[in-house]
């Protein structure tokens, strides 16, 4: 073994140690230990035993979730019930017992299903040693230099039915995503206000489907609107090719799965 493990009592100290470079943060192990086993990890592994990273705290319209909360813990939390549909789709029981909410934000393609749901919900991230929360969308655009995420602030959907999640996989019951889609479609007076739609496995990291959001915004969620959203499903996107699906295939089926999700939300 050529790695050195450094364990810190607080996330702040761990973040400082990470800033020294040539280091990988170890949380649940499903990503970092995989790198170690593959001989691809840097020399130093940095971890923290900070209990604050395990907290789930409701705070007004948001739920504050520690980055170290595992999928299993998320699925046991009533506060986070609106994330259960997405959390259940992550890995098998072993991965859910180990993998963390914070780690999911850094999972390489095609993984990171929960991050897709968090992006659609407009979650914000808190970083050790930095004040103020940043939009998750910013972090996902440049994950390599993000720093140490300690918490997420996840807005609770005002109407549970306004939030939908769909994952399409080829291996059942638990395979990696061909595509994952999350949609937050709050409605006022029968019209969509503040549409947020996110894709997983359609780019290097989870991304917002802005063309789809534009097609939905201000409209009634009816057949004509859904047709327009589906027509815009892959506008400007160049999804990756991997062992599960080619880029062409992902472009072909994205609209089909988007339609299924939107129709299920139309029915409520």
């Amino acid at each position: 073994m050529s790695v050195v493990v450094e364990t810190y009592a607080t996330a702040t100290e761990a973040a400082r140690a990470l800033a020294g470079g040539d280091a990988l943060y170890l949380a649940g192990g499903t990503l970092a230990m995989r790198s170690v086993n593959a001989g691809e990890a840097p020399r130093r592994l940095v971890r923290t035993t900070d209990r604050a990273l395990k907290e789930i705290t409701p705070a007004g319209d948001v739920v504050r979730v520690g980055a170290g909360v595992t999928m299993r813990e998320l699925l046991a939390s009533r506060e986070l019930g609106f994330l259960h549909a997405a959390g259940r789709q992550v890995g098998g029981p072993q991965v859910r017992a180990m993998g963390t909410v914070g780690g999911n934000l850094f999972a390489p393609h095609p993984y990171g299903d929960l991050a897709v749901a968090l992006l659609a919900l407009g979650a914000r991230v808190l970083l050790a040693g930095q004040s103020g929360a940043r939009p998750l969308a910013d972090l996902l655009r440049d994950r390599a230099r993000a720093g140490l995420v300690t918490h997420l602030e996840v807005p609770r959907p005002r109407e549970p039915r306004a939030f939908g999640f769909l994952k399409a996989a080829r291996v059942h019951p638990r395979g990696a995503s061909v595509i994952a889609i999350a949609a937050l479609l709050p409605r006022e007076g029968g019209r969509v206000r503040g549409a947020r739609v996110a894709y997983g496995a359609m780019g290097p990291a989870p991304l917002q489907a802005t063309s789809v959001e534009r097609a939905l915004e201000g409209q009634a969620l009816d057949r004509a609107t859904i047709d327009r959203a589906v027509a815009a499903a892959v506008q400007g996107l160049d999804p990756p090719t991997d062992a599960l699906a080619s880029s062409w295939y992902r472009r072909e089926v994205a609209g089909v799965h988007l339609r299924r999700l939107l129709e299920s939300m139309e029915r409520g």
Binding site: M33, R34, N37, A38, G91, G92, Q94, V95
Partner: peptide, 26 residues
């Protein structure tokens, strides 16, 4: 696999299944 894909290394830690190849021994 050493990657968390196969489950052959599954052990229970405090009654919960874990992938022992991805758990830091210490």
């Amino acid at each position: 696999c050493g990657q968390g894909g196969c489950g052959a290394c599954t052990v229970l830690i405090d009654g919960v299944p874990h992938l022992s190849c991805l758990v830091l021994a210490e």
